[in-house]
């Protein structure tokens, strides 16, 4: 992850390089998100909360709940996807034979 590794799919065509073509910059974004998360958590003690529910007032509720919600959503969807996944032609498969019967 160290060093200037310029990976690009289309540099050969002479196209203008995008800032995002550099994986280092993508790392920067990744760490930026983590940095922002930490900052937002650090803000917790410094503002007045008026929770409707008791659990809502717990430390960093919005942060960790959202994180768990999203991670859970994707992971559950991923496993559900394996169960419910069918080929693209699933609904078309018997249509042709159905028309023959008519």
């Amino acid at each position: 992850m160290n060093g200037p590794k310029h990976t690009s799919a289309s540099s050969s065509s002479g196209e203008k390089q995008s800032w995002l073509d550099d994986t280092q910059n993508i790392d920067k974004i990744f760490w930026g998100v983590i940095f922002l998360s930490v900052i937002l958590m650090l803000l917790e003690p410094f503002y007045y909360k008026k929770p409707y529910f008791s659990f809502e007032g717990s430390f960093g509720f919005y942060g960790w709940f959202s994180f768990l919600a999203c991670a859970g959503l994707v992971l559950v969807a991923r496993s559900l996807g394996r169960v419910f996944e069918r080929g693209e032609e699933y609904y078309d498969a018997d249509r042709n034979s159905g028309e023959d019967n008519r």
Binding site: V33, L40, K50, F67, A71, V74
Partner: peptide, 18 residues
Amino acid sequence: SHVINQLQTLIFSALAFA
């Protein structure tokens, strides 16, 4: 509080995604 909470929601969602 509303703005901070909302930002927490969004950034942590983005964090999860990242």
